[in-house]
């Protein structure tokens, strides 16, 4: 056994290589079951309904702290719906219903007394299509801080810079902070949205296909960023891109027709899946 394997507790994991990303990090743990890791979020028998249509069927899944969990599956399998249950974004869609539990640090976010506004601050979200506000770059990042009262006017520039650095965007925009965010390229806009989400210091960041509308270079930047972020944040990412799931995630959940088919360490899912159907999907036999 090598040193790398010896030092595998999740929290003491060797930090990933800083250079170009695509390879997997050096083989870390021998498949440690998700149970050994601290769970940040957890769903228990989560079902979701659009009117009479059931979109999710009793999904129980745990999202480990400070790592990336990828949700994969064919279109319409419910992975985005699942993701949006985790910060109650589905609340704003009329005629929908949730059953089961979603725990954030052990507390049910669908329980009575949950402050949805505070929940969404703690569980941030990045959307498929970048959606910067039609305001300046600075104002975009400052928005969450302002509405949540997290920073005074004086602290604002520092916090904005910090968030933009965190999203690896600072160097590109520092001279044009007060120009419109809509003047940025698609990839920059998406990183701005990530910066915006990071600014309010969430505990969990949900990403709904954050790179699906971007070109390969911008995609790579986002992936590198995700790689950086997981040192401090718990991330759940929906993706259609198998390679992306394999590159950025520690854990992968395979969804199909609203059910969780398989959930395990990413290496396991991609090299030795437990279900035939998972293998068929990953190898591109359908989907």
């Amino acid at each position: 056994m090598t040193d790398a394997v010896m030092t595998t507790g999740v929290d003491t994991r060797v930090s990933p290589p800083q250079t170009a990303l695509p390879e997997r990090p050096p083989a870390e743990a021998p498949v440690s079951p998700p149970v050994a890791v601290r769970m940040r979020m957890e769903t228990r028998k989560l079902s979701f309904f659009y009117g009479k249509n059931q979109a999710l069927f009793e999904i129980s899944l745990s999202i480990p702290e400070k790592s990336v969990t990828a949700l994969i599956g064919p279109s319409g399998c419910g992975k985005s719906t699942f993701l949006r249950c985790l910060n109650r974004m589905n609340d704003i869609i009329v005629d929908t219903r949730v059953e089961g539990h979603v725990l954030l640090d052990g507390k049910d976010i669908y329980g009575p007394g949950t402050d949805v506004v505070d929940l969404r601050r703690r569980v941030g979200m990045v959307f498929q299509k970048s959606n910067p506000f039609p305001k300046s770059i600075f104002e975009n990042v400052a928005y969450g801080l302002k509405i949540n009262g997290l920073a005074t006017r004086g602290q604002m520039p520092e916090r904005v810079e910090q968030a933009l650095r965190g999203a690896a965007l600072w160097e590109e925009v520092k001279d044009r902070l007060h120009t419109s965010a809509l003047g940025l390229s698609g990839g920059q806009q998406q990183r701005l949205c990530i910066a915006r989400a990071l600014a309010v210091e969430p505990e969990v960041v949900l990403m709904d296909e954050p790179a699906s509308a971007l070109d390969p270079i911008a995609t790579q930047k986002i992936e590198e960023l995700i790689y950086e972020l997981k040192r401090n944040y718990t991330i759940a990412i929906v993706t259609h891109n198998m390679q992306q799931a394999a590159r950025v995630s520690e854990y992968t959940a395979f969804f199909m027709l609203g059910r969780l088919v398989e959930y395990d360490r990413t290496e396991k899912i991609f090299t030795n899946p437990g279900q035939k159907i998972t293998e068929d999907y990953i190898t591109g036999r359908f989907g």
């Binding site: 505070d118 969404r120 959606n131 910067p132 928005y143 509405i147």
Partner: peptide, 8 residues
């Protein structure tokens, strides 16, 4: 949605 997701 972007604003709501930030806690607005």
């Amino acid at each position: 949605e972007g604003a709501l997701a930030l806690g607005a």
